[in-house]
């Protein structure tokens, strides 16, 4: 006899929860990057989705044209995307810090459209596939679902990177500088810390996280120029729910919303596409600073 939860076979529930966990891993790593950038630069990086797409393309192109394998790509692509972020900060964003936040938002949004357009022109929208590395071929039968090894790896890799980042920010000296720069950059400079350099490197790191997520996603989803814009809207909702700039909040909220979305697919599939936004609206009404955010 099949075990049921609220009339739903437990297999289906667990299966969707696992899929939710995989999606949640992507939400977590992307919203973490956004949260770090927003915390220090006060800029909502609308290019984040395009940078995620760039990561996937960097991995795909280095494999296809240069024969660079997955593991090297997993390191190389975030470095390339991070370097692109550093150039973007130095050449463009830096000129906008003294202006209203809106200008940074418009610039990053415009850049996202430009990047998407360029790749659309070069590769079309039909999608390219990235072969799963040999070591991750196959999977394991968990009883309630078949879990491909690669998807298990995605969960492990992204959670490891998320919690390592959290640890560095909350528990180390380097992180203390970052927290201090977020709260009072002027005073930190008066102590002799090169805050402009910190801002550049932090932006680079946040962007590299998006690139890393892009490489992880390449073998699962189609590599397409629009892969980022489809995902990033949900991620922005995650950031709003978690609270702008909250590090742990962005990780926890990312995973939790992935799971909630998965459950919604079981109990009320019609709502699965909007559940995140309904939660966002409720959070904005009841706790505008977000679940983990501090009221200003």
């Amino acid at each position: 006899m099949m075990i049921q939860v609220f009339g739903v076979p437990i297999q289906a529930l667990l299966g969707q929860l696992l899929i939710g966990l995989i999606n949640g891993s992507f939400y977590a790593i992307l919203s973490l990057g956004l949260a770090i950038i927003f915390g220090l630069l006060n800029i909502i990086n609308f290019t984040h989705g395009a940078q995620y797409m760039l990561g996937a393309f960097a991995a795909w192109m280095s494999l296809t044209y240069l024969g660079v394998n997955y593991w090297v790509g997993l390191i190389l692509a975030p470095l390339i995307v991070g370097a692109f972020g550093i150039l973007m900060e130095r050449l463009m964003l830096r000129r906008l810090y003294h202006l209203d936040h809106l200008y940074g938002l418009l610039l990053t949004f415009g850049l996202a459209l430009v990047l998407e357009g360029v790749f659309r022109q070069l590769y079309g929208v039909s999608g390219l596939s990235y072969t799963i590395p040999d070591i991750f071929q196959g999977g394991v039968n968990l009883g309630f679902m078949f879990l491909p090894y690669y998807r298990a790896w995605v969960i492990v890799a992204s959670l490891t990177v998320c919690f390592a980042t959290w640890f560095v920010i909350e528990r180390t000296k380097l992180g203390a500088y970052l927290r201090a720069a977020t709260e009072n950059p002027e005073l930190l400079q008066a102590f002799g810390v090169n805050v402009p350099l910190m801002i550049t490197l932090t932006f680079g790191y946040g962007v590299a996280l998006a690139g890393f997520a892009g490489v992880l996603a390449a073998p699962i989803y189609q590599v397409t120029p629009v892969m980022g814009s489809n995902l990033i809207i949900v991620v922005f909702a995650v950031v709003v729910i978690g609270g702008m700039g909250s590090i742990l909040g962005s990780i926890v909220t990312g995973i939790a919303l992935g799971l909630i979305e998965g459950m919604t697919k079981v109990f009320y599939p019609e709502a699965s596409g909007v559940v995140v936004f309904v939660i966002m609206a409720l959070v904005l009404l009841l706790r505008p600073a977000g679940l983990f955010g501090r009221e200003k």
Binding site: A176, Y177, R179, A180, E183, N184, F191, G192, V193
Partner: peptide, 17 residues
């Protein structure tokens, strides 16, 4: 005074390089 709220007392103390 400029004490950083996101840092502990000791982190504040050790902050200036």
């Amino acid at each position: 005074r400029g004490i950083f709220p996101g840092l502990t007392t000791e982190e504040n103390l050790l902050l200036p390089p």
